[in-house]
Computed example of a mutant assay.
Amino acid sequence: MSLLIFALCLTVTVAANSDSNYYGRTKPAKVKQEKVTRLRFYLHDIISGKNPSAVRIAHANVTGGGSVDDSAVGFGSLFAMDDPLTIGPGKNSKEIGNGRGMYVSGSKDISKLTIVMYADLAFTRGKFNGSSISVFSRNPVAEEAGEREIGIVGGRGKFRMARGFVNIKTHQIDMKTGDAVLRYDATVYHY
């Protein structure tokens, strides 16, 4: 009987060990020369009108000291975006892609408006068609006087494994509606 129990325990141990293995292979990477690409384009974030490019999908019930409707982008509001990227700042400028993602208003004081955003900035025309850069960063919108910076955390296509930063300058903003046209100057490091 003890021999049978020993054989059974041995079988269970062997089966458990074989299930814990997985396939993996490591090989040396071919080192490629890192490139830097600088891009300038405009992002149009329109939250007003009948055909907005960004819509509020959630907001806080209580934000303290006022209503979420006190501004177009109230504290705690979460927006989904599908913003056009264009060559120039005009609304009829040639579209070269779209910025899709989300942003949340992270400041109680509207005079210090800051959003935290995740966006995939995808190019649908030109040299970088099918490629994108991904940003995930704090964006201090109220700092209109100068440029503000957000971080590039990845990319795909020609920008695979991208890193870098985007300097954003507000070209035009309507604080009543929240509509904005922003100049993006991206410095992208990639392979």
Rank of each mutant, 00 (worst) to 15 (best):
F128S: 01
I173Y: 10
Y191C: 09
A16T: 12
N21M: 13
R163S: 15
S18H: 10
G65V: 00
S77I: 05
A15W: 06
I168D: 06
I5G: 07
M81I: 07
T86D: 04
V36D: 00
G164N: 09
A29E: 13
T86I: 12
Q172L: 14
A119Q: 05
S137N: 08
V73W: 09
K108L: 13
G74A: 02
G76R: 03
G130A: 01
G106E: 15
R156S: 15
K176I: 04
L4V: 14
E95A: 06
R163L: 12
R40P: 12
N167D: 12
R156N: 15
R138V: 15
M175C: 08
K32M: 01
K27M: 05
R183H: 09
A80G: 11
K176G: 02
N167L: 13
V181P: 10
S105M: 06
V141A: 00
K127L: 12
S71H: 07
G164V: 03
D83P: 11
I133S: 01
S20F: 07
A29R: 14
G90W: 04
K176R: 07
Y23I: 11
L113F: 01
A119W: 01
V141S: 04
R40K: 15
V55T: 14
S132E: 11
Y184S: 04
A142L: 01
T187D: 01
P89D: 06
R38H: 13
C9Q: 01
A180W: 01
G154F: 07
H190G: 07
F159V: 08
T11D: 01
V68Q: 02
P28K: 14
I133V: 12
A7P: 06
K94P: 08
K94N: 10
V188D: 03
S105L: 08
G88R: 05
R100P: 00
F136V: 09
D185K: 09
N92M: 02
I87R: 08
K169W: 03
A186P: 02
I5T: 15
R148S: 10
R25T: 09
P52T: 08
I115C: 02
T13M: 12
H44A: 08
V104R: 07
V55N: 11
N17S: 14
S20I: 13
G154C: 06
A162N: 04
S137D: 15
V12T: 11
V62P: 00
F6D: 14
T37A: 05
E149R: 10
I133F: 02
F79W: 06
Y189V: 15
G76P: 00
M1Q: 13
N51V: 13
A54Y: 02
F159I: 08
S18T: 05
R38I: 09
F136G: 06
L8T: 15
D82E: 03
Y189M: 12
S71N: 07
T170E: 06
G106Q: 10
T26L: 10
V166Y: 09
K158I: 07
R25E: 15
Y103I: 03
S18A: 15
G24A: 08
I47C: 07
G178V: 00
M161V: 08
T114A: 11
I5H: 09
M161R: 04
A60M: 11
M81P: 04
T170P: 04
G66K: 09
V68L: 04
Q172Y: 12
M1K: 11
T114F: 09
G66E: 08
I115D: 03
E147R: 05
A142F: 02
K30Y: 03
P28N: 13
G66T: 08
F79T: 07
I87F: 02
